[in-house]
Every structure is written in structure tokens, then in C-alpha cells.
Design a protein around this nucleic acid. Structure first.
Ligand SMILES: [Zn+2]
Ligand SMILES: [Zn+2]
Ligand SMILES: [Zn+2]
Ligand SMILES: [Zn+2]
Lengths: 145, 145
DNA sequence: CTCCGATTCGAGATCGGGTATCATTCGGAG
DNA sequence: CTCCGAATGATACCCGATCTCGAATCGGAG
């Protein structure tokens, strides 16, 4: 079993079955670079004539999100995208042109959330910060669209 | 013309027509408290036997979002919700139980975004911070679900 | 290695938010 | 009051996502 990828290992160490379709989806994700939509994976799978069912792809995405190997991003357009990532709390900066993303640490946001809790009286359980813009490569390429 | 509501004024001052359906949608939103889904408004409209078309409600939401009187929130579930708000840049804290929300100012996030831009090399155009938890009322009410 | 039950799969139906179309109506400027 | 472009609403449509269910698969026990 050569080359057990990060995603595959994440599935195994979460105690879930490592099936062929799941491996295939993991490979599709690895072959990508940056954030992708479920539709992207479905298209990739069809293009490569893998016999992966549509529902299976959604289920694999769901599983990977559950175990923290994938995170859902809400694009400014309202569409959903996913980005592979580690389980530790963090946030993402996503290029709106090529979809490549980088993780950033909490950078004092947890403290800010506490501050907000104190000021508003809300008990804050969860927060999400997403940043969008142009990655270094895409800044170089074209006129700043 | 008694009681020109904030939403109505926002529509007028944006130079858009103030039609009966739009007033009705504005009223539905005012009657609500906190974040709501498009489906909520559709249900409300049907419930009150207003003859408002489904598409019209979506268009009114779109319009209000365009002029900054409404903002789309992406709930942790992946669903979309909307929350009435002013046009200045800000963020929202949303109660996951009753959907009431409060606006919070930028609180140094713009500076943080600049810092992230410098560290990552991305040119950051847009960011979104959303916080979820329990509002003061809902904290009191039940066991912390 | 073989077997078996639980899990997962795949195909297709279905659901639901959101949009496109288009004839009709309406707001509001003049 | 008139008039015209903007807005409406009924309907069809699109597409992401989920559900259903019989069949295939996985992986541990023996
Ligand atoms: Zn890029
Ligand atoms: Zn954080
Ligand atoms: Zn609440
Ligand atoms: Zn901000």
C-alpha cells in the first residue's frame, strides 16, 4: 500500500472504513489545489470515468468534514466550497481567482471573541472568519480585476 | 403615509421604487426579530394570505442586500439567513436558538486583515466574521443545549 | 482463507433554495 | 392624467444536496 495520503490516514485514524470510492475522492482532492466545490469533484470523477456515484462523493465530503480533514467555506457568492485542512482551529484566506488558500492561526481572535461575549452578553460557541482576495501569483498575472 | 420604516426609507433613498410588495416584505422583516431565511418570509407571506409571489420575495431580499439594508449570514449548518443591518462595515453575533443578532464594529479586524495580507502575500479584498452562540435570554431559559 | 454482518455504494427519485421567462400591472415623473 | 420603464407573479426550470433501497464491499472473527 504505497503512499498513504494525509486524507486516507485521517479517515483510518478516525476509525472509518477506507473504501475504494473514498480513496478515489481523496485522490481527486489531492489532485486539486485549493478550494473546490462538490460539483468540481463530481465533474472530475466523471471526467476520469471513475464509477463513483454522485451521492458517494457528497458522503465522502461530509465524512471528511466531520473528521476535520476538510472545512466548508462560504464564498461571497453564496456558493459552498471545501478546503482541505488540519483539525486545529484556524481560518482561511482564499484566492477568489484560483481558489488556492492558506490557513492562518487564530491570531488573537479567540480573545476577541471573549471580548465580544463580554460586551454583548452572548455566550459564543463558534466563530468563523474567512478572507478573500488575490494570492501572490494572481496579483502578478492580470490587471487587478 | 404613516410610519415610513427604516427599510422603506432605505429603499427610497437608494432611488428604487417603493412598491406594495416591497413594503409588505419590509413589514414581514420588521415583524421578525433577528435572522431569518427566505423560506421564513415565504411562509409568513403565505400565512398572512398576502398575494406576494415567491420570486418577488427573493427579489426584495436581493434588493435589500444590494443596498446594504440586509446582509446574508452563512449559518454553521450551511443554510443561508439574512439579518437587517446598517450599511457600515460590521459583523454579526447570532443566537443559534432564537436567531436574534447584534452587530459589532470592526474591533481591530481591519488591522488584522492588513497584518494577514502582509504575512501571506495575499491582497485581501473582503472578509467575513460571524459568531454564533446563545443570546442572554436564551442562556437563561434552558439547559445549555 | 472464508464467511458474515454492518457499513458503504450507486442509481434514481426527490427535495428545496434560487433563478429565468414573459405577459401583465404599477409607480411616479412630468 | 398619461405614459413608460420597472416591478410583479405564475410558472417552468436549474442545480446542489439528500433520501431510498437493493446490491456490493469491507474487514474482523474463526
Ligand atoms: Zn490565485
Ligand atoms: Zn478563530
Ligand atoms: Zn436567543
Ligand atoms: Zn470587519
Amino acid at each position: 500500500m504505497p503512499d498513504p495520503t494525509l486524507l486516507e490516514m485521517a479517515i483510518e485514524s478516525a476509525g472509518r472504513r477506507l473504501t475504494r470510492p473514498r480513496r478515489a475522492v481523496a485522490a481527486l482532492i489531492d489532485a486539486r489545489d485549493g478550494a473546490f466545490s462538490a460539483a468540481d469533484l463530481v465533474a472530475d470523477a466523471r471526467g476520469q470515468r471513475l464509477g463513483i456515484g454522485r451521492a458517494t462523493i457528497f458522503r465522502a465530503i461530509e465524512l471528511l468534514a466531520e473528521i476535520g480533514a476538510l472545512e466548508r467555506i462560504d464564498l461571497p457568492t453564496g456558493d459552498h466550497a471545501y478546503v482541505p485542512c488540519g483539525p486545529a482551529h484556524h481560518h482561511h484566506v482564499v484566492c477568489r481567482r484560483c481558489s488556492r488558500s492558506v490557513e492562518i492561526g487564530d491570531l488573537g481572535l479567540a480573545a476577541l471573541a471573549r471580548d465580544i461575549a463580554r460586551k454583548t452578553g452572548y455566550r459564543i460557541d463558534e466563530h468563523r472568519l474567512e478572507l478573500f482576495g488575490l494570492c501572490p501569483d494572481c496579483r502578478r498575472v492580470g490587471a487587478p480585476a
